[in-house]
């Protein structure tokens, strides 16, 4: 198949950046989207041009490092699929594909399609953990947890931290990312103890990083590779409001 591409090129953070046209001919439809970018980069190397910088690592949908806007959607046209798991068979022959970085104030562009998502790390640093030191743990089966509870916690814990939820949100809100961690930990008996401080600190950090507020469009759930439910945002709001009401 043949494809036409418009790709965002930006040398460094301060650079204005622009869209640049490329095209690729005779590629296999079984190729993954990132292998298509590899192929384009091979051609750029032959022409002694700077290659397109994009984030990727595991290429099996779990590390969360890849992620670009493809035709205006984070990770492209398929729902609940990372960029690396997208294949060219999803596109039509001669289709124009527009590729841009994730856009958000809190995710500054570093180069081409690479953005700085370290704000997510700082949100976790603010409280996305259970305070247990190595060596303090009791016998594992001393904390029985019903299978449905463990499974619900897992649904939230499955977040890969890619940032698609932020990129798709018109307010660039990190509510889904933050609430997924809050929900994962508050559902478990081990995590309940610190629930109040956790939600307060993580929500504050989210605001300080420049993420916007949630406006309940629920686009994040659709874009999320792990299909993390927006109900976690409701749980975060409940935990946060409970804190305000109780004035603890």
């Amino acid at each position: 198949m043949n494809i036409r591409l418009k790709i965002w090129r930006q040398e460094h953070e301060g650079d204005a950046g622009k869209m640049v046209d490329y095209s690729l001919n005779d590629i296999s439809s079984d190729m993954s989207f990132l292998e298509m970018l590899d192929t384009l980069n091979e051609q750029l190397i032959q022409k002694n041009e700077r290659t397109i910088e994009f984030d990727h690592d595991c290429r099996e949908g779990i590390c969360g490092q890849c992620g670009v806007m493809i035709n205006g959607r984070p990770h492209g046209p398929l729902t609940n699929t990372t960029t690396c798991q997208l294949h060219m068979r999803t596109f039509k022959d001669n289709e124009l594909i527009v590729i841009e970085p994730f856009r958000a104030t809190a995710f500054p562009v570093k180069c081409d399609l690479k953005v700085d998502r370290s704000a997510f790390d700082r949100i976790i640093q603010a409280g996305g953990f259970i305070s247990v030191n190595t060596g303090q743990a009791p016998e594992a089966n001393d904390i029985p947890i019903g299978s449905p509870v463990a499974e619900s916690a897992f649904d939230a814990a499955a977040c890969i931290g890619c940032g698609a939820c932020v990129a798709v949100c018109k307010n660039a809100s990190a509510a889904l990312f933050t609430s997924a961690k809050i929900s994962h930990l508050v559902l478990l008996p081990q995590g309940k103890i610190e629930a109040a401080a956790r939600v307060k600190n993580m929500v504050e950090q989210m605001d300080n990083e420049g993420f916007g507020h949630c406006s309940n469009t629920e686009a994040c759930e659709v874009a999320c590779p792990q299909a993390i439910s927006v109900l976690h945002i409701a749980r975060m709001n409940y935990e946060y409001n409970k804190l305000q009401v109780l004035k603890k």
Partner: peptide, 22 residues
């Protein structure tokens, strides 16, 4: 064995049986 204890304490959601045990 200690590793499983540590991971559970950290909140790692291992698979459980219906009685709540690992």
């Amino acid at each position: 064995a200690s590793l499983i204890d540590q991971a559970v304490a950290q909140g790692v959601p291992f698979a459980r049986e219906y009685g709540g045990y690992l």
